[in-house]
Amino acid sequence: MLKIDCPFCGPRDEIEFRCGGQSHITRPGPHSEVSDTAWAQYLYLRGNPKGWHYERWLHASGCRQWFNVVRQTTTHEIKAIYAMGAPRPDVEGGS
């Protein structure tokens, strides 16, 4: 079980949260110029790393705010928690 340090509410149990998948995906545009390939990449292609994963979380049963987490997908260790819109922190071995 994870204990996630919500930047707004403090440490809470993982069952209060929802994982929203990979972070730092930018919607391509303008829409009329986006190729099918670029759109498919945006919608479906994911890094799926075995290692450090930059992902979005929602404190669904709390403040209902989104934020970013850097988490290890084999150990589930959380290295960093940072605000939406903030730049990706560098983590050794992160991708």
Binding site: M1, I15, C19, E55, R71, T73, T74, H76
Partner: peptide
């Protein structure tokens, strides 16, 4: 389980 993982053990909740 509710988040991406490569740990073959699963989560208690």
């Amino acid at each position: 389980d509710l988040y991406p993982s490569y740990a073959q053990r699963g989560n208690l909740h």
